[in-house]
Structure formats: C-alpha cells, structure tokens
Computed example of a mutant assay.
Amino acid sequence: MAEQRKVIHVTEYDYQSPAECSQQICILQPQESNQMTVGLLRKGQKLLRHALKIRPNPSTVQTSQDAFGNVVHHFEMNYPHDHLEVVSELEVEVIPMLHTGSLDELESPVWHGIVDALRYKAGQEVSTDFQFRFESKHVPILDSLRDYGRLDFWPNRAVVPAAYALMQRIFKEFTYKSGSTTIQTTVEEVMQKRQGVCQDFAHVMLGVLRSLGLSARYVSGYMLTEPPPGQPKLLGADASHAWVSLWCGPELGWVDFDPTNNQLPDSRYVTVALGRDYADVPPIRGVVHGGGQHSLKVGVTVF
C-alpha cells in the first residue's frame, strides 16, 4: 500500500558582514520522470507537491533539468544581504516494491553477463545506463576496490545476491561516525580508516561496483527515522541521506541498496536526485561575493 511522506528541509546561512551578491543552485525537488516508477526490487514514487521558499526574496529564479533528469533551481541575490534561508517543502506518495518474498526466491542474472552487455560494441546503440560504469569526481576505479568486491562477486553468482552481500559487508566492516569525513575525503581514505557517513558508504559501494564493470549511480534523498519509544519526534532532527542504485539487467532494472543501514530502500525513503556521485546532486551550492565568515544551519524533518 502506498504511503505519503512529507519533508521539510531548511538551510540557513548567516554572514559575518553583508554579502554583496550571491548565486546559488538547489537540487531539492524530486524528479517526476519514469526513473522513479515501481519495480520488482525498487520502490516507486509520485511527486504530489513541492514548494521552494527563499528569504530574502531572490532577484531571479530559474528552473531547469540537468543531464540526469534532476530538477535544478538557480537563483541570484543581486543586493546586499546578511542572511539567506532556503526552505524546501515536498510531499510524495511512495509505492512499495512489487517483490515481497525472499531474495533467494527471485531469479536475477549473473553479474558478469550484465558486465558483458554493458560493454561497447561497434554498431550497437549505447544505452543511457552505460554512463554510470565510469569513474567520476569522487568515485575512482581501482584494483583494490575490484579485489574487495571479488569476495562477493565470484564467477556465475547472481547480481542481486552479490550486491546484497557487498552491502552487508560494508555495513559490518565500516563504522558510521558523523563528522569523521568531509566532501574532500577520498574513497581510498575511507577504505583505509573504515569509517565515514552515508555519502562515504555510497561512494565506496559505487567504486567497488564500477571497478567490477557494473553500472551504478548515486541516489540522494531522505529517510524517515523514528524517535526513541515514548519520545516525541524532534523537528529538524533528520538529515539528507544517500544510497546506491545498481543496474541489474532489463528485467529487474535499477535496484537500490543502502549500505549505511544494510537494507533495500523501502517506503520510508524519499528519492530526490540521481547522479554519478555527490558532486552531481548536492542539495545547495553556490558562490558568494563578500560576507566574510558565515555560519550554516541545516534541519530536515521527515513525516
């Protein structure tokens, strides 16, 4: 049964002195394309409403679509301002995946067959899924990552059980530690220290899958978290989340895996954007002229 989710994402900047002007890009609105339709092992999602509130009022606002189908808002503040607040409010209907049984009951193709199908062949049309095979800004292709993946991806193993086992191993062998990394932390450093946050876990899993020759993409969004028993839900206590989507052949399509929480994303998850890694889909980024030092506050609430 479909469930409705509401998300309020608040980002606030306070500048030490007035910024003369700024230009910002937001990726906060979920797609409305068929990339979010329900699958055997992938939840579906329908956007019901989205509102973007910017204070103070921007000089200009433009909306476009990037190469991955994500909705991108561009806005400018062409006057002095010492505070910026961006509030994204959205409502979606989340549809559970179609398969409700055990993964052992599901037939999935062997992983090296998918690798062979993704290889370029002269005279053959290149699939749009092909682009997620290659390394990207934050996800390198390395022999060490390939070797790490071969512990789960042995010859003739089905792709879904292999990816599920990899997800479980990352969850068990890596420690989630808030603030332990930054966006500049490399996959090699995360592999060495065996700790990080959700975007690090996603980058590691992407690096392993791509190093094996598979096509996998970065997914950004939110996850509903429940408060401790007897405690009220705190507004702004949730956070943005990241996980992985793996191409598992034409019959299964894209299948999502969350190595941070060791599960296939279900109706508690809200998908916002898809890309090669975090650099393609940050919630907000921009350029500010002046302003000096600034403080940043981010609050996310998922209902």
Rank of each mutant, 00 (worst) to 15 (best):
E12W: 04
A165G: 14
I95M: 09
P56T: 13
C26E: 03
K233I: 06
L151D: 12
H112W: 12
Q168H: 13
M167F: 06
F132A: 01
G44K: 06
Q184M: 11
F153M: 09
D116G: 10
E91I: 05
H99R: 13
E173C: 11
Q23G: 12
G113M: 11
N70H: 06
D66W: 03
A237F: 06
H73T: 13
S215Y: 07
D82C: 10
A2G: 10
V38W: 03
P265M: 06
V270D: 01
M1G: 14
T37Q: 15
A237E: 09
V298W: 02
A117E: 10
E20Q: 14
S17A: 15
I95F: 07
V272W: 00
D152M: 12
V244A: 04
K46Q: 15
V10T: 15
N70L: 03
P18D: 08
P140S: 08
T60H: 11
V159Q: 01
L106D: 07
V244Q: 02
S220K: 03
S136N: 04
Y278H: 09
R42L: 08
D256I: 04
D143G: 14
E32I: 12
D14E: 10
D256N: 13
V71M: 08
G149P: 01
A242R: 02
R276S: 07
L224C: 06
K121L: 11
W243L: 04
T37A: 15
G253F: 03
H294E: 09
K6C: 06
P96G: 10
Y164S: 14
V126W: 07
F303S: 15
T271Y: 00
A158F: 05
L235Y: 10
V219A: 02
T182D: 08
A19F: 01
Y15V: 09
M77Q: 13
